[in-house]
Design a protein around this nucleic acid. Structure first.
Lengths: 129, 129
DNA sequence: AGAATAGTCAACCAAATGGTAAAATATTTT
DNA sequence: AAAATATTTTACCATTTGGTTGACTATTCT
């Protein structure tokens, strides 16, 4: 898979580190959108939205095709896959962590259940480790 | 799974958007490290490293246990898993994209091969779509 | 007690970020 | 040709970032 270099990963993660931009990506996952359409859900100026879009474009996360006066954007998922892949390196690690959590949860739940008689559906969050 | 709220995801992705911090996480994947150990590979002041570590801590990506005068850090993989999960929502999308790329690559490769006689190992990057 | 070690904290700096408003550009509509 | 639409560009501003240095705190070693 694409295997981005560190500076590229910097740019991709930075682009993802903003809720506005992430929502734009979510919208784009539903199909092509114009700049105006992408901007519409937010209470920011079109210029600000335009900047966000340029950040996404700079990260290679989207592509733009100018059709007349409107610019259509589409998701370009390669870099997302790279970021996902990078995070995947930690999967083994956090899976084992989650196993531990799972066990603690069960133990805690059993104890709680024994003492209070509450059904275990009451305890969803588990102990704060 | 943990399912971080947008502001939390902001913080996590921002923390990941720096090569220094990502390398620290990589080191921590190998086991506990002190602040000094984490700082050592970089040509930055200890104070700067300390700031990076605080960012990682603020994102919940690591935890710190003060043992005497040294602060030991360990990976706290939950938020990494959340970021991974968030990116996973796009998996379906980019997999289909990569299928398209794959096909284009093959077509392009066949054409190139036919015209130039070059073996396909020469064309690794594929066409710029 | 005094010196060395491990880190943090505070003040500061340059550059980047996310936002705005107003002007400019390009295209489509009337 | 003129007006409307879609978007970018150009200042400009406040805040955040990543870095520095020097002083401070806490702990360990001699």
């Amino acid at each position: 898979m694409v295997e981005l270099l560190p500076p590229q990963l910097d740019i991709v993660f930075h682009a993802l580190g903003d809720a506005t931009r992430r929502q734009m990506l979510r919208d784009l996952a539903g199909g092509e959108r114009s700049v105006g359409q992408l901007a519409e859900p937010f209470s920011i100026s079109l210029a600000a939205a335009s900047k966000h879009i340029k950040v996404l474009e700079g990260a290679g996360l989207i592509r733009r095709e100018v059709k007349g006066r409107t610019h259509m954007c589409r998701l370009e998922a390669g870099p997302l896959a790279s970021a996902h892949e990078w995070l995947g390196h930690y999967e083994r690690f956090w899976l084992s962590r989650l196993d531990i959590l799972e066990n603690l949860l069960r133990a805690d739940d059993a104890r709680t259940h024994a003492v209070t008689g509450k059904p275990r559906t009451d305890r969803k969050k588990g102990p704060r480790l």
